[in-house]
Design a binder for these strands. Structure first.
Lengths: 312, 312
DNA sequence: CATGTTGCTGCCGTTTCGGCAACGGCTATA
DNA sequence: TATAGCCGTTGCCGAAACGGCAGCAACATG
């Protein structure tokens, strides 16, 4: 089922690998064949598509436009294929997810497991990365569904849903703060804190608030792993900050206490966005999972905001 | 700039013409070439795409799926082309509009004229048809932008905007009703009325209301042309019904009087929807016109609802 | 300076494509 | 019922496109 010119597939491979010879290896063809198809494309478009650097190729402006078109075509071809397949009862395919670490503790594994019991022939690929990398992976067509902290999102992505979760402090049960119901940032900064490195978006949420307080926080630990920060907090090393999403099980085991964070009298929110490439129609099985994901995250949002009602 | 397999272009032509030989004539190639490409496609998809009837071809279910994919590809190719062209300063192309008759009196010509003064190299194609045909033309890729009465719209179309306009009675200046500020359906039915035929969507708006009144309206004239109905009303033949959109100029010439219609104490609305094919990104110049269209219709909606404030 | 890698280009066999003519199936009309 | 016209399909053959091989110059790396 390959009814598109080789040129666009070759172009796509060259764009991904950044090299004609590498693309040729990927496609199991001679590099000359790839080179010629690219030259032919450039002749037909009437403008160079790549800048030839000494070490590989880079897209020109026109090249990026074509890359966008080619991605639309190939992704839609993919959807067509799965549509045809599902017509003969074969409901299968792979859903590829790019997401931040927060949801790997319970949301994502729960959802995937539950989805697999109903649709056993749908596979999953999940990759953890930073928020901005999630958006980039979507834009490059390397993932179908993206979950990231909702900052500004580029116009070529579609924000399917936006759920807000309350940011809180995470402390061990024996911690002096553990008996409080809520906690302010100032109170936390009196203790050693486990800070997020700039690669985590929690950093960008908290840093402005900390800067406002103009108190230099007690030197503590910096990490770029939600998991690590949680484990450190559980051992009483300090105060960590995250949403309750990532600590469903651990807090039930009662080693950890989650304290909703207040700042200037109002909660601190962390906005979680679900994203999809805008110029694209998803295959049916991907769309189905996406709906469940939105529903589930909405459910969590509702539950948590009920547990910790609005305001201090 | 033809970097897609001939197969999909041939398929597209066959789908539109419903015949291999006709498609061949359209494409200036031998019919055998077209036939072979279709057969090859069917072999690669693994399922027939057309049903061979005695008189031409009809799409199968799989064929319709492929048609959708092919249309996505070709429309996106079109957008890519215009994107590349606009990069070298050439902002040109054709915007194709399918719309109902109501807006041909002033909205559409005003907009097109105004747009042409700014973007002189953008051409327009406008075709008048019934509301359901508008949606069908969009779905078949025969128009870029559709304007129709907003009933239920199929999921493969995107409703860009929805504007509501007040339905009213149209009478000559000398008509007994002409001195009123508003008018009810019952009052109108006491006089000869100019009824819309079922092909016009006004029919489907008014017929249920008329049926409720259970008075047989005085036999009068039925027509399927907004223009004709307006001219008839101007000559005092009877009461016509339409929105104020179509009578901007005539009512200023004071031959006609527009009386907002009330039914059971509340206004009767006519919802105008602007539609675009969902799985598609518009070329920049088309998108630009679309924005102006939405803005202008929104402006009219605001003005008219200010002129005839809510309620009786 | 040697070595490896890059993209590109003749040369040539293979595959694909398109035009021509003919065939069988069907409809409409006389 | 016979015939003319249109339909999609198929064999044949020349033309165009494609891909593999080997070799080129340009550049980076050591």
């Amino acid at each position: 089922m390959r009814f598109h010119s080789p040129s666009i597939q070759y172009f796509h491979a060259v764009r991904r690998t950044g090299s004609i010879r590498a693309a040729a290896r990927l496609l199991n063809v001679a590099s000359s064949a790839v080179s010629r198809q690219i030259l032919k494309l450039e002749q037909e478009v009437g403008s160079p598509l790549f800048e030839r650097n000494a070490r590989g190729l880079t897209l020109t402006t026109v090249g990026e436009m074509l890359a966008r078109h080619v991605m639309n075509v190939l992704q839609d071809l993919d959807r067509f294929r799965s549509d045809v397949a599902s017509l003969s009862g074969a409901w299968h395919g792979t859903v590829s997810i790019a997401c931040i670490e927060s949801i790997t503790e319970s949301v994502l594994p729960d959802l995937i497991a539950s989805h697999r019991t109903r649709a056993r022939r749908v596979s999953f690929t999940a990759e953890i990365m930073g928020s901005s990398d999630v958006l980039e992976a979507l834009r490059r067509g390397e993932a179908d569904i993206g979950i990231a902290i909702a900052l500004r999102h580029p116009p070529d992505l579609r924000q399917v849903a936006l759920k807000r979760f309350r940011l809180g402090a995470l402390v061990a049960r024996e911690h002096p703060l553990a008996r409080r119901k809520t906690v302010t940032l100032e109170q936390c900064l009196a203790f050693p804190v486990i800070q997020a490195l700039p690669e985590l978006s929690i950093y960008h949420l908290l840093q402005p608030l900390i800067a406002q307080l103009s108190e230099t926080p007690e030197p503590a630990i910096q990490a770029n792993s939600i998991d690590l920060m949680r484990e450190l907090a559980a051992r009483g090393v300090g105060v960590a900050f995250q949403t309750q999403l990532g600590i469903g099980r651990l807090s039930r085991d009662a080693q950890l206490v989650f304290l909703p964070l207040d700042n200037a009298g109002s909660p601190v929110w962390s906005d979680l966005g679900i994203y999809v490439r805008a110029e694209r129609t998803l295959p049916a099985f991907t769309e189905s999972f996406l709906q469940e994901l939105v529903r589930e995250l909405g459910e969590r949002e509702r539950r948590e905001n009920a547990a910790y009602p609005q305001g201090a």
